[in-house]
Design a protein around this nucleic acid. Structure first.
Lengths: 216, 216
DNA sequence: GTCTATAGCCAGATAGAC
DNA sequence: GTCTATCTGGCTATAGAC
């Protein structure tokens, strides 16, 4: 890795701050309601300066999604290194992390209907590459978990994969949090339990199951 | 019910056509990307004429949501009349209907973040009344199903209710449909199975005994 | 109530000085 | 690369004739 000049480091730090602001605003208001003025205001620079770093609002969103995928891949790799855990446990750990990220207000969400945004993402090689790597790892765990009887093997792997991905934009945690009656940890446990129980299906009997938690 | 004059009937039919167009466009593009010009174009009238019927874009969306709630309540009442079915079966039937509606491209979706839209809906007495009636019926079924052992009673009823409601905007059916490899019926079966299996429960998530993924 | 035409506004993007 | 100031287009909403 070549050393960066001082100016390049400053550039990096600034762009990092921009992406952080975009990430937060995307999580808070979504793409359509986020304005470029807000991003500039949060970073503390002029809007025109933003456009020296990113060529469009869509490019800003894409940069935030790239960072999300990098973070996700890091979590996946971390779980991959934990050789003592089963495939379904790794899958569950990554899903738990995603739910925690969402409840923390750091999960950027994009409208899947916006076509200009879709085009930008589908043309973004780095993003696509990261997405494929994450999907491949998760997909391998899914197939393995199905073979081990930990996930219902009557579901096509893509059904399981999409279901796991969809936890990133699940509205249920937000609703439960808005009711103000439960801790974040409790909310994550419930949503994760619904998700994993649903994917486990009827395949797996009690052989490997944990002791039943007492009903609360 | 008073008889309607001819002019009033014409008005009804026209407004019905407007709401139908709004409903379809909300399902296709969502609130932000839907323009009032498009609605007028689809109905075949001038935009100014639209504003004689509905005072704002938000009011248009609210009207579509009222119709959705009316349709939902009708389905709920229909299930309520089927005395031979159990509570969990009725809950599943309503959820299935919602998934089918979504796959048919007739499920309007609103951004929960838009504040002006939220305000309009929360001030709309008819909408709120319908929402409460639907929630009450579903809530009663949930409690009953938990008592009968058909749903995991360690989940608070609101967790179950929100999970069922969230199927209306679940992105998984759309992703599976986009892959083009499965029939709508098959997709509904899978998503519904994941949902109901998850709520039925039986075992607790394994990851609860695992160390949490470190923040990255 | 329907239309054409337009007002008013806001947000994305750019020009040009420094 | 940063700024201020401005352009541009598209959208909601309305005026006013018929």
């Amino acid at each position: 890795m070549a050393r960066l000049s001082f100016r390049e480091q400053v550039l990096r730090v600034r762009e990092d701050a921009i992406v952080t602001a975009v990430n937060r605003l995307l999580a808070e208001k979504g793409f359509d309601l986020m304005t470029v003025d807000e991003v500039a205001g949060e970073v503390g620079i002029a809007k025109a300066s933003l456009y020296k770093h990113f060529s469009s609002k869509e490019a800003l969103a894409a940069a935030a999604m790239v960072r999300l995928m990098e973070r996700t891949l890091a979590v996946v790799e971390q779980q991959r290194a934990r050789t003592e855990t089963s495939a379904v446990q790794r899958l569950e750990a990554v899903t738990r992390w995603a739910l925690q990220l969402q409840l923390a207000g750091e999960m950027p969400s994009l409208p899947s209907q916006n076509s200009s945004l879709r085009a930008e993402l589908l043309a973004h090689q780095t993003y696509l590459d990261l997405l494929v790597r994450v999907s491949d790892h998760l997909g391998a765990w899914i197939v393995q978990a199905q073979a081990e009887g930990d996930l219902d093997n009557s579901f096509p792997p893509e059904v399981v994969l999409y279901t796991v991905f969809a936890r990133a934009c699940d509205p249920v945690p937000g609703f439960l949090k808005a009711s103000g009656q439960h801790s974040d940890e409790q909310i994550v446990d419930w949503v994760l339990a619904v998700c994993m129980n649903g994917l486990r299906g009827g395949t797996k009997p009690a052989a490997k199951s944990l002791p039943q938690a007492a009903a609360v």
